[in-house]
C-alpha cells in the first residue's frame, strides 16, 4: 500500500514539475526577447540624460512616452491609431480577397496561369509607390485611394503564396481524391485548400507587413488623420518625439497584428510535422 501511495505522489510531483518547466520556459523566452530592447532603452535614456546626444534632435524614451500619454489624454491618439488600423484592415481584406480569387484560379488552371500570370507578374514589377499619383488622380486624396494602395501592396505576397501553395500540393494526395471519384470542386475544397493553407498563411503574414508599410506611404501623401499624418505633423512642427512616438506605435501595431496571425497559424497548422510543433 505505502509503495502505491508513494508512486502516486511521485507522479503528482512529476506532473507539477513539467507544468512549471513549461511556464518557466515561456517566461525565459519572453525575458530573453525583451533583454536587448531593454538594454537599448536604458542606454538611450542615459545617453540623453548625460547630454551625449542632443535632446532636441533625439528625444529620450521618457519624453516620447510622455508624448504618447499626452496624445492619449487629449483623446486624439485613438482617432489616429483607429483610422490607420481601419485603413490597413480594409486594404488587407480587399487585397487578400482579390489574391485568393485570382490566385486560386491561376494555381488550379494551367491555361489561366498562362493567360494571366505574365500580366500579373508585370504589374508586380512596378514599384507599388509608383501608383500613388495615379490613384490620387483617379480617386482623389480620400480614403479610397489609400485603401487601394494598401490593397495593391497586400495583393502580391498573398497571391504569390497562394499560387505556389496550390501548385505545390502533392499529386499523390490528389490521386487519393480521384480514387474516391471526387468532383473537381471537392478536390479543391477537401485536398487543395487545406494542403495549401501553410503557404497561404505565410502570404497573409507578409501581406500584413506590406499593408503597414503602404499605409505610411498612403498617409504621407495626404491625410488629415492617422499615424502617418502624425509623422508629417512631427516633421513640420520640428517635434522628433512625435515622429518617434508614431514610429513606435507603428511597431507595436505591426507586431500585434503579426502575433495575431502567428497564433492563428500555429492553431491552424498544429498538424504540421515540423520543428515548431516538436514537443
Amino acid at each position: 500500500m505505502t509503495v502505491n501511495i508513494d508512486e502516486r505522489e511521485l507522479f503528482k510531483t512529476k506532473g507539477k514539475k513539467s507544468v512549471n518547466v513549461n511556464f518557466e520556459n515561456k517566461v525565459r523566452g519572453l525575458a530573453l526577447g525583451l533583454l536587448i530592447p531593454f538594454i537599448l532603452l536604458v542606454v538611450w535614456e542615459t545617453a540623453i540624460r548625460l547630454n551625449w546626444l542632443d535632446a532636441y534632435v533625439f528625444p529620450a524614451p521618457t519624453t516620447i512616452l510622455q508624448k504618447i500619454i499626452e496624445l492619449a489624454q487629449e483623446g486624439t491618439l485613438w482617432g489616429h491609431v483607429g483610422i490607420t488600423f481601419f485603413r490597413v484592415l480594409i486594404g488587407f481584406l480587399a487585397g487578400t480577397f482579390a489574391a485568393v480569387v485570382l490566385g486560386s484560379i491561376v494555381g488550379y488552371f494551367k491555361w489561366f496561369e498562362q493567360l494571366m500570370d505574365p500580366l500579373i507578374q508585370a504589374f508586380r514589377a512596378i514599384p507599388s509607390l509608383a501608383w500613388v499619383p495615379l490613384f490620387i488622380l483617379w480617386m482623389g486624396i480620400g480614403e479610397s485611394s489609400k485603401v487601394m494602395l494598401i490593397a495593391v501592396g497586400v495583393f502580391f505576397p498573398v497571391y504569390l503564396n497562394i499560387v505556389s501553395g496550390i501548385q505545390g500540393v502533392d499529386r499523390k494526395l490528389i490521386e487519393v481524391g480521384k480514387i474516391y471519384h471526387f468532383t473537381p470542386l471537392q478536390i479543391v475544397r477537401r485536398i487543395i485548400l487545406p494542403a495549401s493553407l501553410p503557404s497561404f498563411l505565410v502570404g497573409l503574414r507578409s501581406g500584413v507587413g506590406l499593408g503597414w508599410m503602404f499605409v505610411v506611404a498612403a498617409e504621407l501623401m495626404g491625410a488629415s488623420q492617422g499615424l502617418g499624418y502624425l509623422l508629417v505633423v512631427g516633421q513640420n512642427t520640428y517635434s522628433p518625439e512625435l515622429i518617434i512616438a508614431s514610429i513606435i506605435l507603428f511597431a507595436l501595431l505591426g507586431k500585434a497584428t503579426d502575433s495575431l496571425l502567428k497564433t492563428l497559424e500555429a492553431r491552424a497548422l498544429k498538424w504540421q510535422d515540423n520543428l515548431q510543433n516538436q514537443l
Binding site: K172, E175, V176, I179, Y180, I191, A195, L197, W271
Partner: peptide, 24 residues
C-alpha cells in the same frame, strides 16, 4: 467499386486518424 492502397499511406496530414479513415 475500387479501393486502393498505395505504397505510401497518403494520409491527409491535416486530418486525424478518424477523419482520414472517413475521408472518402
Amino acid at each position: 467499386p475500387i479501393g486502393m492502397i498505395f505504397q505510401e499511406p497518403r494520409l491527409m496530414p491535416w486530418l486525424t486518424v478518424r477523419e482520414n479513415i472517413l475521408f472518402g
